[in-house]
C-alpha cells in the first residue's frame, strides 16, 4: 500500500465561545418572535449552531434553544416541534435560517387562537456568541496522522472544523470533509462524503469525533488490505 500524502497539510484549530448576555428577555412567543427579528446574527448563531458546542447533557429535546424554550417553558409543543426539526446546516447563512424561524413562528401564531404565556420564572434570555479560534500546533499530511490528531484534540476542534467551518464558509483546508476530498488534501471523495454525513446525524461533538474516527479507521484498514 502506498500512503497518500496531502500537498496542503490539515492544520487543527480549536475554538472557544465567549458568551455575551444581551439583556433582552422574552416571556411569551410573540415577544420571542419580535426579539428574534431584531437580534444580532451572532445571537441567532448562538441559539442554533453553537448548540452543538455545548455539553451533551445540556442538550435538551431539540437542537436549538428557541424550540426547547417554546416546548418546555412557553408550553407550545406544536411550535416547539416545528422549530425543533430545523437542521441549521441546511441553510446557507444565518439570515436564511432566521427567516425560516420567523416564518414558521408567524404562521403558527396566525393560526393559533390562544397565546400561552411562560408559566415558569425562566424567560428566554438572548445571548450572543463570540467564537475565538485557537491554533493547536497540530497538523496532518496523511490519513494516519489525521486520525491520531483527531483522537486527542480538544473537542472544540471538532466543532470548529465541522460546524463552524461550514457555517462561516472557511477555506477547504479548514473543513474536515472538504480537506479529505480536496485534491490538494487527501483526495478521498468517498470518505469525505461519509464524514460530511456524520455531521448531519445530530450527534454530540464527542459522538461526531468517534464516528469520524471510525470512518477513518475503516478507510485505513481498507487501504492496508489493498
Amino acid at each position: 500500500m502506498i500512503e497518500r500524502y496531502a500537498k496542503q497539510p490539515f492544520r487543527f484549530f480549536s475554538c472557544m465561545e465567549l458568551r455575551e448576555v444581551l439583556g433582552k428577555r422574552a416571556v411569551d412567543v410573540p415577544r420571542l418572535l419580535e426579539l428574534i427579528e431584531e437580534a444580532p446574527a451572532d445571537s441567532i448563531y448562538y441559539h442554533t449552531y453553537s448548540y452543538y458546542l455545548r455539553h451533551a447533557y445540556t442538550q435538551q429535546l431539540y437542537s436549538n434553544d428557541f424550540a426547547n424554550w417554546i416546548a418546555l417553558y412557553a408550553q407550545d409543543r406544536v411550535l416547539g416541534e416545528r422549530l425543533g426539526v430545523l437542521d441549521p446546516f441546511e441553510f446557507s447563512d444565518i439570515e436564511q435560517l432566521r427567516g425560516e424561524i420567523l416564518s414558521i413562528m408567524a404562521d403558527h401564531l396566525n393560526h393559533s387562537t390562544v397565546v400561552t404565556r411562560c408559566i415558569v420564572s425562566e424567560p428566554f434570555e438572548f445571548i450572543r456568541s463570540h467564537v475565538i479560534e485557537i491554533p493547536l500546533g497540530l497538523e496532518a499530511t496523511t490519513l494516519g496522522e489525521f486520525y491520531d490528531a483527531l483522537a486527542i484534540v480538544e473537542v472544540g476542534a471538532v466543532y470548529n472544523h465541522v460546524c463552524e467551518a461550514r457555517m462561516r464558509k472557511k477555506p477547504r483546508s479548514a473543513d474536515f470533509a472538504d480537506w479529505l476530498a480536496w485534491e490538494e488534501g487527501l483526495g478521498l471523495q468517498d470518505l469525505a462524503s461519509k464524514v460530511e454525513q456524520a455531521a448531519r446525524l445530530g450527534l454530540s461533538l464527542e459522538g461526531m469525533r468517534n464516528k469520524i474516527l471510525r470512518l477513518c479507521d475503516q478507510e485505513l484498514t481498507r487501504q492496508r488490505a489493498s
Binding site: 480549536s14 472557544m16 475565538i132 485557537i134 493547536l136 500546533g137 484534540v153 480538544e154 473537542v155
Partner: peptide, 13 residues
C-alpha cells in the same frame, strides 16, 4: 480537565 484543555489554555495564554 477535559482532554486537550491544557494545550488549549497554553495557546490562549
Amino acid at each position: 480537565a477535559p482532554q486537550g484543555t491544557v494545550e488549549l489554555l497554553q495557546q490562549l495564554g
